[in-house]
């Protein structure tokens, strides 16, 4: 695979224009799912083809690109998407959230607040938040257009009746600018409050052929009940490596005796903190850290 074998960022210009039109429409109607003609990408569905097409449509040659999968830059999925654009667009890549101009993500929002000159692109498996209870696409589109969202609360009601609390921990439904109910993709609900941010957020679902968007500073409200209010919860622990108390944590079993380690799911956030001298309960100062 050589750079010259492809148009910039793999997709032809006409396709990118079509995707950009869908993105602009999405930005004009925050939270509304815009249909688009998803293209075959040289990777299977479920590997972020929706996000990849959106990234391809927004990238320009002087962009700096970052990819995270569940917060980490070094997973197979993240690495292969980053390499893909390194090759097909020749853009600079980085792990550093602050240096990236376009960040493609699966299942997380970076801990560091994003800026107005950054774009966050989400990979979305199932864009339709009503799908789990209403299988008909015709009906769900009608529900959106008529703002018939009672069903969303039925889902939360079921959660409470079965678990005593709203157990939905990922893809927690939100209402955008008091209008469209939207699936924020399977980010942990801890990330929901960050959905109102300075950066542009774009959501791409490849298999389902939908794009939606949140312009900067969009009001995004997590659905709940008066007596069971939304809570952006995380493990009640500090990061064992960097000591952060405000970041979303992954829990690792570290030995056969059931020893556990909590660490930031945002690997860049964690390593940046450690480089700045923060040390967690099980961490070692960064200079001696072989990893």
């Amino acid at each position: 695979m050589t750079v010259s074998a492809y148009n910039f960022a793999y997709l032809d210009e006409q396709t990118k224009r079509m995707i950009r039109r869908a993105i602009l429409k999405g930005l004009a109607i925050p939270g509304y799912q815009v249909p688009f003609a998803s293209r075959e990408m040289p990777m299977p569905y479920g590997w972020g083809t929706g996000g990849v097409q959106v990234s391809a449509a927004v990238l320009v040659p002087d962009d700096t690109f970052k990819v995270i999968d569940q917060g980490a830059d070094d997973t197979t999925n993240a690495v292969s998407i980053r390499r893909f654009f390194e090759k097909t667009a020749g853009v600079a890549v980085t792990d550093d959230t602050a240096k990236a101009s376009v960040i493609q993500t699966r299942h997380r929002i970076p801990e560091m607040p994003l800026r107005a000159d950054q774009i966050l692109v989400y990979q979305v498996p199932i864009p339709e938040p009503l799908r789990f209870l209403e299988p008909s696409e015709v009906e769900t589109r009608k529900m959106h257009s008529l703002e018939e969202y009672g069903l969303m609360h039925v889902k939360l009601y079921e959660d409470i009746s079965q678990h005593g609390a709203i157990a939905t921990a990922y893809a927690y439904p939100v209402k955008v600018e008091g209008r469209y109910v939207m699936d924020p993709s399977p980010i942990p609900k801890f990330d929901n409050p960050k959905l109102t941010m300075d950066a542009i957020q774009l959501f791409g679902a490849g298999r389902e052929q939908r794009i939606y968007a949140l312009p900067p500073h969009t009001q995004v409200v997590s659905l709940d009940f008066e007596d069971f209010p939304f809570e952006a919860s995380k493990a009640d622990h500090a990061c064992d490596l960097c000591g952060a108390v405000d970041s979303y944590l992954d829990e690792l079993i570290v030995d056969d005796a059931g020893g556990r380690l909590f660490m930031c799911s945002d690997t860049d956030y964690c390593s940046t903190r450690r480089a700045a001298g923060h040390v967690g309960a099980q961490g070692v100062p960064v200079k001696e850290d072989v990893a």
């Binding site: 209870l133 018939e148 009601y157 079921e158 409470i160």
Partner: peptide, 27 residues
């Protein structure tokens, strides 16, 4: 009926559709 929703959820749906947002009251 919604066959994959509990009896309580089935009865509560119309209440929630017209804006009921208090779980205890709905139940």
């Amino acid at each position: 009926l919604r066959m994959n929703v509990s009896a309580g959820g089935n009865v509560g749906e119309r209440l929630m559709a017209v804006g009921a947002r208090h779980y205890g009251d709905i139940r």
